[in-house]
Computed example of a mutant assay.
Amino acid sequence: MTYYSERPGNQVVEPAIINPVVDYHDRVRWGPILGGIAIAISTQLILSALGAAIGLSLGAGGANAGDVGWGVGIWSIISLLIALFLGGWIMAMTCGPMNKKTALLNAAILWATTLALSSWLLVSGISGTFGVIASNAGEIANQVQQPGTQLPNIDPNQARNIAANTARAAWSFLFGSLLGLIAAMIGASVGARKPRVYA
Rank of each mutant, 00 (worst) to 15 (best):
residue 1 M to V: 07
residue 2 T to E: 12
residue 2 T to C: 00
residue 3 Y to L: 15
residue 3 Y to G: 08
residue 4 Y to N: 01
residue 8 P to M: 12
residue 14 E to Y: 13
residue 16 A to R: 13
residue 20 P to K: 06
residue 22 V to T: 14
residue 24 Y to Q: 11
residue 25 H to V: 11
residue 29 R to V: 13
residue 30 W to H: 05
residue 34 L to T: 09
residue 38 A to Y: 03
residue 38 A to L: 08
residue 49 A to R: 10
residue 55 G to I: 06
residue 56 L to E: 13
residue 56 L to F: 14
residue 56 L to H: 14
residue 58 L to E: 09
residue 60 A to H: 12
residue 62 G to C: 06
residue 63 A to S: 15
residue 73 G to Y: 04
residue 74 I to M: 06
residue 74 I to H: 04
residue 75 W to D: 09
residue 79 S to D: 05
residue 81 L to R: 00
residue 88 G to D: 07
residue 89 W to C: 06
residue 93 M to W: 03
residue 97 P to V: 05
residue 97 P to H: 12
residue 98 M to Q: 15
residue 99 N to P: 11
residue 101 K to L: 12
residue 102 T to P: 01
residue 102 T to V: 15
residue 103 A to P: 00
residue 104 L to I: 12
residue 109 I to S: 03
residue 111 W to A: 15
residue 112 A to P: 03
residue 115 L to G: 09
residue 115 L to T: 15
residue 118 S to K: 01
residue 119 S to D: 06
residue 122 L to M: 06
residue 126 I to H: 07
residue 126 I to R: 10
residue 128 G to H: 07
residue 133 I to F: 14
residue 135 S to Y: 09
residue 139 E to K: 14
residue 141 A to N: 13
residue 145 Q to P: 00
residue 147 P to S: 08
residue 150 Q to H: 11
residue 151 L to V: 07
residue 157 N to I: 15
residue 165 N to F: 02
residue 166 T to F: 10
residue 166 T to C: 01
residue 174 L to Y: 08
residue 182 I to L: 15
residue 184 A to Y: 04
residue 192 A to C: 10
